[in-house]
Amino acid sequence: MPSETPQAEVGPTGCPHRSGPHSAKGSLEKGSPEDKEAKEPLWIRPDAPSRCTWQLGRPASESPHHHTAPAKSPKILPDILKKIGDTPMVRINKIGKKFGLKCELLAKCEFFNAGGSVKDRISLRMIEDAERDGTLKPGDTIIEPTSGNTGIGLALAAAVRGYRCIIVMPEKMSSEKVDVLRALGAEIVRTPTNARFDSPESHVGVAWRLKNEIPNSHILDQYRNASNPLAHYDTTADEILQQCDGKLDMLVASVGTGGTITGIARKLKEKCPGCRIIGVDPEGSILAEPEELNQTEQTTYEVEGIGYDFIPTVLDRTVVDKWFKSNDEEAFTFARMLIAQEGLLCGGSAGSTVAVAVKAAQELQEGQRCVVILPDSVRNYMTKFLSDRWMLQKGFLKEEDLTEKKPWWWHLRVQELGLSAPLTVLPTITCGHTIEILREKGFDQAPVVDEAGVILGMVTLGNMLSSLLAGKVQPSDQVGKVIYKQFKQIRLTDTLGRLSHILEMDHFALVV
């Protein structure tokens, strides 16, 4: 994948999101292997301009796509893939009243899908469409860049269908997702969380590099694949309309690839034109409109599966009536509230959605109805927002919020430890010299600072030695090549209790 991002070429006709291997024109390309080798690009942008032909009021008969309808489940399912879809609609009884809503608040519980998330729908649909058009064949390999849930859905379907599955996901995604993927037989590649989507090191860039190296491999490409919004247009939206008897006044959905909100909203605009569509985008993402909503100094966020630093091709923002931004604290607070007060075992993005819903639905009156999409299960986040310690460490809970008995030293300040200034190293000294210094002084790690004293990161003896043994660096290389740029900081005025929580999850903390 090139470091400079080429513009994806656009073909003359058809839909841009065809499933299957992508040609340089962004659509299915038939021909000899030699032709494909000559024409197939190194990668295709996940934010390529959409060429979708959908228009409100256009006859369904003019759609270029294969459409399906929700099917009634048999008493005995032939395999677990038949437990994807037909998820329950559940009334939220307490939270709406707590925040003064007059309307009825309903939750579409997508964590009841077989793999635990709304992404099971698009995973199965992308595979079925690729099999139907002859792209996927027995023994082929599926590769997908994902925040985890699409990966789980694909790995689940691949396990049943017999495909090899490789999932490329950023490091910030939970260990629970990784464990589930491994249990399903998927191979996992992790990428830096802070890598831009168009960087060769991003999950998108690495996935395309693997595709170019592995024979008979395919990126189904949830960011561009029409099967993504079509899955929701054909099934999720129809289920909502049936469950609500066609009567709903507002739908609120958090947005990642945009397939969920695009597919549902398009069908609702056709069948229930008075329904307002509300999009939820986390602070630090750029999906919301108008652009002024996205202006923030924050560039990272903890909530998973929603928000991006690019506009995915499948996201149709014209069908969203209003956007709201959400933050991590309210997302996790509301997710825990949904679990504790409503018994809905949902993930953090569901918290984002409901946090926005109780604001947006203030305009609705008694007798009206708001539906929220709860995308995934708490299963993926047992060591994250479900953990009091994690919430404390991230600053989303305060010590006084917890009532468990603490040891005698818990409320003492870090400054009472009488710490001395640490050994520091410059980023320009060599790895070999740094190892000598650390061994001589008896230290395992040291902060790396520039000549102005600005902290650049941390270097550890173990990481340097393993990097040297693996051949990633040489003793003569500058130590700046092996620094940890993500590390926890703590102030002298913070409590030892807070430091204790940090050290339970990290090997060190830097006192500043």
Rank of each mutant, 00 (worst) to 15 (best):
103 C>L: 03
159 A>M: 06
69 A>F: 14
190 R>V: 08
234 D>F: 07
188 I>G: 04
93 N>S: 15
21 P>F: 03
174 S>R: 00
225 N>A: 07
233 Y>W: 12
135 T>I: 04
64 P>G: 05
164 R>D: 02
227 S>T: 14
100 G>F: 11
183 A>K: 05
124 L>I: 08
56 L>V: 12
17 H>D: 11
212 N>G: 12
243 Q>M: 07
79 D>L: 06
112 F>C: 01
215 P>R: 02
254 S>L: 06
170 P>H: 00
205 G>I: 06
187 E>V: 06
45 R>Q: 13
56 L>R: 15
245 D>S: 09
184 L>C: 06
240 I>W: 00
179 D>E: 11
94 K>P: 01
250 M>E: 00
269 K>L: 04
20 G>E: 14
262 T>L: 00
91 R>A: 03
96 G>K: 09
210 L>I: 08
186 A>Q: 03
146 T>F: 02
236 T>E: 04
120 D>Y: 05
140 D>S: 11
249 D>K: 15
91 R>V: 04
126 M>N: 00
194 N>W: 10
144 E>F: 03
223 Y>Q: 01
213 E>V: 11
37 E>I: 09
11 G>Y: 14
192 P>K: 06
37 E>R: 06
52 C>V: 04
138 P>V: 08
102 K>Q: 15
178 V>F: 14
34 E>P: 04
153 G>D: 04
29 E>H: 13
254 S>N: 13
262 T>N: 09
84 I>L: 14
2 P>R: 15
144 E>V: 07
78 P>I: 06
110 E>W: 00
223 Y>E: 04
29 E>N: 12
234 D>M: 12
178 V>K: 06
146 T>H: 06
32 S>D: 05
218 H>R: 14
167 I>V: 02
30 K>A: 09
114 A>S: 14
75 K>Q: 11
23 S>N: 03
13 T>F: 08
45 R>L: 13
58 R>T: 11
51 R>H: 08
137 K>F: 12
192 P>H: 06
150 T>G: 00
232 H>E: 03
128 E>Q: 09
154 L>T: 01
130 A>P: 01
98 K>L: 06
201 E>V: 04
136 L>F: 08
196 R>G: 10
73 S>W: 13
194 N>A: 10
214 I>G: 04
186 A>D: 06
47 D>A: 08
219 I>F: 05
272 C>N: 04
262 T>H: 11
106 L>C: 11
49 P>V: 11
30 K>Q: 11
166 I>G: 03
243 Q>S: 06
11 G>H: 09
174 S>V: 00
9 E>A: 14
142 I>L: 09
81 L>F: 11
153 G>R: 03
100 G>V: 08
179 D>A: 08
94 K>M: 12
95 I>C: 08
266 R>V: 11
257 T>L: 02
263 G>M: 00
80 I>E: 05
213 E>F: 11
58 R>C: 07
6 P>E: 09
99 F>D: 03
129 D>Y: 08
181 L>M: 07
9 E>G: 13
98 K>H: 10
237 A>R: 01
147 S>P: 00
104 E>H: 05
40 E>Q: 13
78 P>K: 08
122 I>F: 02
112 F>I: 05
273 P>S: 11
261 I>Q: 01
165 C>N: 02
190 R>A: 01
177 K>S: 00
172 K>A: 01
103 C>G: 12
242 Q>T: 11
79 D>H: 10
126 M>C: 06
157 A>C: 09
254 S>H: 07
65 H>W: 03
253 A>M: 06
14 G>D: 13
73 S>M: 14
214 I>D: 05
160 V>A: 11
152 I>P: 00
139 G>F: 12
235 T>N: 12
225 N>C: 00
243 Q>W: 05
145 P>Y: 01
254 S>F: 03
161 R>S: 12
75 K>P: 08
118 V>Y: 05
198 D>A: 06
276 R>C: 10
173 M>W: 00
74 P>G: 13
219 I>R: 02
179 D>H: 08
131 E>V: 10
183 A>H: 12
178 V>L: 05
209 R>W: 07
